[in-house]
């Protein structure tokens, strides 16, 4: 049963489903992550079990004696959501094999970019290589936001963070970010994709595909953080849309080695400045004398976009 054969998803039809993340969690006002989680959970029809890395999402959604989760949920530490999920999924397989468990279930691990790109990278790589039937989702806000906006390997070049602050000598983060989605694709996982909550249909279709696939899956999902990005509380969806329209965060998927760009803005591709400008963490890039930094940022985006197009052309649908 493939997702594409089903009726097209509509918000009206989805609105009948139970929201599996309750209100009353303590995520900051206007945070992008809970919107991502709600969309992910709404996309799933089967019973699902969640593993969560330490991070904003974890501390804010399950603060004893409260939990916002209406599905089985487990957190154990920061760097090991993929390993913890491996254990849960393997116990499921063992008990099913022995006839001790009847119901079919799906498994998802959530981690922020710190818990995924950095400290959880090894555990993630191992879990993907071992072929567990699980979907790992990184909600990517581009820094260690939970602990106060320290730079991670997902932080964009030039960003002002509390551990690489903009100073008179150093203009914020000096190196470019790691491209984790491509690294996951290089693991030859069954499914790897990037998504963004502004395009809920694309995001939810990808979650369905990822869970229907036979093998491990990875999704990187943009999750704006108004505290860390120094933006307004009302612009998380606006900024995730701009990230896609500028091709900073292209929507694409890699299914069994086949690369597909899901959204190509073509001649409507916006200059990166449109995404950077509303964000206080990039303010210095617009100061006189820093034109070269802005140009370099644009070039990195353009080069990445071009290489992604080449991959899609070379390894896309024939």
């Amino acid at each position: 049963m493939s997702a594409t054969q089903e009726k097209p998803m509509t918000l009206k039809s989805l609105s009948h489903k139970k929201d599996n993340l309750s209100g009353g969690h303590r995520m900051c006002s206007g945070c992008g992550a809970p919107t991502v989680v709600r969309q992910v959970l709404l996309a799933i029809d089967e019973p699902v079990v969640i593993a969560n890395a330490t991070g904003c999402l974890e501390v804010s959604t399950c603060l004893f004696p409260y939990t916002a989760w209406r599905v089985p949920w487990m957190h154990s530490a920061f760097e090991n959501a993929a390993a913890t999920a491996s254990g849960i999924e393997t116990m499921y397989r063992s008990l099913r094999k022995q006839g001790k468990l009847k119901k079919e279930m799906k498994f998802i691990a959530f981690g922020g970019d710190g818990g995924t790109y950095d400290i959880g990278f090894q555990a993630l790589s191992g879990a993907m290589e071992r072929g567990h039937q699980l979907l790992y989702i990184c909600y990517d806000n581009g820094a260690y936001m939970n602990t106060g906006i320290q730079r991670s390997s997902a932080t964009p070049m030039g960003a002002d963070t509390t551990t690489q602050p903009v100073g008179s000598k150093i203009p914020g983060k000096t190196v470019r970010r790691k491209d984790l989605t491509r690294i996951m694709a290089a693991h030859n996982v069954a499914y790897a994709a990037q998504a963004s909550p502004h395009n809920w249909r694309d995001l939810m279709t990808k979650v369905k595909k990822a869970l229907a696939t036979n093998g491990p899956a990875y999704m990187g999902i943009m999750a704006p953080c108004n505290r860390g990005w120094r933006t307004q509380t009302n612009d998380s969806i606006l900024l995730s849309r701009l990230a896609v329209d500028t091709c900073y965060w292209p929507l694409y998927e890699v299914e069994g080695g086949k690369w597909t760009i899901n959204y190509d803005p073509k001649d409507k591709k916006k200059p990166i400045a449109e995404w950077l400008k509303p964000q206080g963490r990039f303010k210095h890039l617009f100061a006189p004398g820093n034109e070269a930094l802005l140009e370099r940022f644009q070039k990195l985006v353009d080069d990445d976009w071009e290489s992604l197009q080449k991959l899609a052309a070379a390894f896309g649908a024939k």
Binding site: F64, P72, W73, M74, S76, I88, M91, L95
Partner: peptide
């Protein structure tokens, strides 16, 4: 945790 009909949260922040 796999008692799917009785969802629970393991590992809260305390």
């Amino acid at each position: 945790l796999l008692d799917i009909d009785n969802p629970k949260s393991i590992g809260a922040l305390v």
